[in-house]
Design a protein around this nucleic acid. Sequence first.
DNA 1: GTCTATACTTGGATAGAC
DNA 2: GTCTATCCAAGTATAGAC
Lengths: 198, 198
Amino acid sequence: MRTVDPVKHAAKKRHITDTAAGLFAEKGFDRTTVADICKAADISTGSLFHYFPTKRAIFREIFEQDGKDNAEILARAGELSPWDGVLMVIDHLCVPALDRSVAGLVLEVVAQASRDPELWELVARNEQAVRDELAVLLQRAHDAGQIKLPVSARTAATWAQGLVDGLYGRLVDPDFDATAQVSTLRLILSRFVGAQAP
Amino acid sequence: MRTVDPVKHAAKKRHITDTAAGLFAEKGFDRTTVADICKAADISTGSLFHYFPTKRAIFREIFEQDGKDNAEILARAGELSPWDGVLMVIDHLCVPALDRSVAGLVLEVVAQASRDPELWELVARNEQAVRDELAVLLQRAHDAGQIKLPVSARTAATWAQGLVDGLYGRLVDPDFDATAQVSTLRLILSRFVGAQAP
DNA sequence: GTCTATACTTGGATAGAC
DNA sequence: GTCTATCCAAGTATAGAC
């Protein structure tokens, strides 16, 4: 008979990652201390290190969850008409941008990933999966005559992601209205790949 | 009679910022220690703090220099035909992306700026100047019939910057060839604003 | 002006009682 | 499993000799 309740264990881990995510987004990874997290989560350091071996491990856990969410969306996009699928994936990628507090986290993960190989691998695999699926959808849309690609499907997919990055980059400007700009993003992408005006 | 030679003083400051910039790009701001900088620049900590009050001040100095370079380019762009001016500014913004080591520095400044008000002000002023000039050039190009803007000149200018951000975001992918992709960036922008294919 | 040595602070992680 | 107390390392910045 096990003494640990796996459900409770997972719930507590989740509580810690959720709390930490807010702090990382606000102050950045390096400037958020373990003490900060413990205080916010209302636990002791001893307890925190019972659940996670290091501070970095907490950070990684946050993005592992994110990868699983993504995979689900990609699967659903494959069921639509190709171009609609592309737009759906793009819309989904833009969702976090609409929540101000999440934006800081995205900037942080990019900055950290280039120096943390394990985190990098996680992020890269995730981006790769999105890019591959976008490339497939774009090629299909092209073959079906919905769009007319001026570059390879792969390059187009890369730039679709680049446009989303551009959206995130602009978020640091307090005057930038992300919600309104998502439609401009769609317009730019549509014109790029020769789709009908949306 | 002054005991300090202002030329030598400036040269030494420059030596420190150049050395530090390389380290910041490679390891990030927070993970680069003052000791690291001193070792690489071959000076002592005492000496370093004679030239800069804090570590952050070194970081800021790097980007102050950058702002001055930018202002010069913007002035020259105003002398060309409007659309050529736009393309020249964009090309200039892309130059740092071609140097791998500088890319890390760009990611770092974005991550840091949201938490350092003084640095933020520096970066924001710089971006604002670029955006204003781009908006003016785009509007003139539109009025001259070189392009046909589907959105306000200001929004278009913002997205021109967003595209450049997208380029930087893709740099973390080791397979991404920045040099080749600058032309794709120009294609996307051209189609967006209804310019002749370049 | 530049160095060496070091004071002072903070932070990540651990030990051991309960 | 959770806490308190604490260790040890690293980091910024300063003091004071030269």
